[in-house]
Design a protein around this nucleic acid. Structure first.
Length: 238
DNA sequence: GCGACAG
DNA sequence: ATCTTGTCGC
């Protein structure tokens, strides 16, 4: 576990954050198909919060893409770096997520984020932002459609429908379990949308959400419990 | 103008 | 995201 300091010059206002998005957005690479599904490694990242104590914990869990076995994992804790503002989620999550990724003992391969990539009001959601900062291929898998419109995909697992901002397809609603609410997939960086959806299907043999997300979620929650536990123990001990 | 809005 | 018991089912 590593402890994170909020980077110097980190945006302090919504206006500054939007300016950063507009500046970095031009660096997103869209003409690469990305790593082939089922090969190499796939890493899930997630973050948990205790706003009460101003503590944030992130986890990165590396899976073998073929077997979905855990190959490596790392966590990081720090202070909350930004309030939750729809459209600016990345500024809340990224410092701690970056630290967790850097603490990994091996390359992460494709990174799967909780939330959106290009499906974003400014076309620069968390997955795109993390991709540009790390240079890694990334995708976003969200549980909710945010502000976007979509037609219900067919009932069978694997069915998709466009996720629409007006007439622009910014992502895809993807059914990962028969008859269950779809997930919302969008490209982050250095990956194509077809490939991103194929990865998500490969990562959902048993549950609605990708194994990467499930494992990272469990790990960051336990890291948060450990971190806040230390705080209260320190308080009691002196 | 107001509200809704990834996590 | 988070607050939260028991409960149904594989």
């Amino acid at each position: 576990m590593t402890t994170v300091r909020i980077p110097a010059g980190w945006p302090a206002t919504e206006e500054q954050a939007r300016a950063v998005q507009d500046e970095l957005r031009a660096q997103v690479v869209l003409d690469e198909p990305g790593p082939a599904p089922g090969t190499g490694r796939v890493t899930g990242v997630d973050v948990a919060y205790d706003d009460e104590r101003d503590v944030v914990a992130a986890a990165a869990v590396v899976l073998d893409a073929a077997t979905l076995d855990v190959v490596a994992e790392a966590t990081a804790v720090g202070r909350v770096s930004f309030p939750y503002v729809p459209g600016l989620l990345a500024f809340r999550e990224i410092p701690t997520v970056l630290a967790a990724l850097e603490a990994l003992p091996c390359p992460p391969g494709l990174v799967v984020c909780d939330g959106y990539g290009l499906a974003h009001p400014r076309r620069f959601g968390l997955a795109a932002h993390l991709g540009v900062l790390t240079g890694l291929p990334t995708i976003g898998v969200a549980k909710n459609p945010f502000t976007f419109a979509y037609d219900e995909p067919g009932a069978p697992r694997g069915s998709t429908s466009p996720l629409l901002a007006g007439t622009e397809e910014v992502g895809r609603a993807l059914r990962t379990r028969d008859g269950v609410k779809p997930v919302f997939v969008s490209v982050g960086h250095r990956t194509g949308l077809d490939n991103a959806c194929a990865h998500v299907l490969a990562l959902t043999p048993s549950f609605r959400l990708p194994e990467t997300t499930r494992k990272a979620d469990a790990l960051c929650r336990s890291a948060l419990r450990a971190a806040t536990g230390e705080v209260s123990a320190a308080t009691q001990d002196g």
